[in-house]
C-alpha cells in the first residue's frame, strides 16, 4: 500500500520536474534563425558558415591546365573535361594565371551537381587549385538540366572555331610534313634513306592522333 502511494507520488513528481524544465525553456531565447532573412554566410560569430565549407564547386578557368586529374579523382564521375590543343597558328595566345603558356583550351568543362557528392577529392587532386569549393549552397532549381554547369569559357561556335584552327594547323603540318617527306624522298634518292623515313612516319602518326582528338 505504501509502495503503491509512493509510486503515484514519484510518477507525479517526475512529471512536475519535466514540466518545470519545459517551463524554463519557454522563456529562453530561441536558437533557430529565420533562414532566408538571416543568411548563414552573413551571420555573426561562430554561427557563420566557415570559409572552407564544401559546397558548390567553382572552377577558376585561368588556373586550369586541363590535366584532368580532378576527373580521375572524382568517385562519382560528375566532372567531364574535354581539351583541345592550342594551335601554334592561333592568334589568341593566352597565358595561365601564373604566366605560363597555355597548352590546352578547355573546350568542355562540365560538372553535374546532381551527381556531385561534395567529397572534396577533386580540390585535393588539382595541382593548381583551379577547382575549389565555394560557400554557395543555394542552387536548387526546377529543371534537373540546370544542375549541369558548363564552366568552359567558350560556346559551341568558339569551340568549333578553335577546333577548325587546330585542324587547319594539323593540315598545314601534314602538308608541310608531306612536302618535307617529298623533299626528303628527293634527298633520299640522292642520299641515305633510312633515318628520314622513320622521322616522317612519326610525324604522320602524331598528326593522325590530333585529327582523331578533334573528331571526338
Amino acid at each position: 500500500m505504501i509502495n503503491y502511494l509512493k509510486n503515484i507520488i514519484k510518477g507525479f513528481s517526475t512529471i512536475l520536474v519535466g514540466m518545470k524544465v519545459t517551463f524554463i525553456n519557454l522563456f529562453r531565447p530561441n536558437v533557430t534563425v529565420q533562414y532566408p532573412n538571416v543568411h548563414p554566410l552573413v551571420r555573426a560569430g561562430s554561427d557563420k558558415m566557415p570559409d572552407n565549407a564544401r559546397n558548390k564547386l567553382n572552377v577558376i578557368i585561368p588556373k586550369c591546365t586541363g590535366c584532368k586529374s580532378c576527373e580521375k579523382a572524382c568517385p562519382v564521375n560528375c566532372i567531364t573535361i574535354e581539351t583541345t590543343k592550342v594551335a601554334s597558328i592561333d592568334t589568341e595566345k593566352p597565358l595561365m594565371e601564373d604566366g605560363k603558356k597555355r597548352v590546352f583550351w578547355l573546350s568542355q568543362f562540365d560538372i553535374d551537381f546532381a551527381k556531385c557528392c561534395f567529397c572534396g577529392l577533386c580540390t585535393i587532386a588539382c595541382p593548381t587549385s583551379a577547382i575549389v569549393h565555394s560557400t554557395d549552397f543555394e542552387y536548387s532549381c526546377y529543371d534537373r538540366n540546370e544542375l549541369l554547369v558548363h564552366f568552359s569559357p567558350f560556346n559551341k561556335e568558339q569551340v568549333a572555331e578553335k577546333k577548325r584552327i587546330l585542324a587547319e594547323e594539323v593540315k598545314q603540318k601534314a602538308e608541310k610534313a608531306l612536302a618535307d617527306k617529298q623533299a626528303a624522298e628527293k634527298a633520299a634518292q640522292e642520299q641515305n634513306i633510312t633515318d628520314s623515313k622513320i622521322k616522317s612516319s612519326d610525324d604522320q602518326t602524331s598528326a593522325n592522333q590530333n585529327i582523331q582528338n578533334n573528331s571526338n
Partner: peptide, 19 residues
C-alpha cells in the same frame, strides 16, 4: 548536436559526410 556538427564543419568543411 548542432555544436558538434559545427566543430566538424569547421575542421572538414562538411556537416555530415566529412571525408
Amino acid at each position: 548536436r548542432e555544436f558538434a556538427l559545427g566543430i566538424l564543419e569547421k575542421l572538414s568543411g562538411a556537416r555530415l559526410l566529412y571525408n
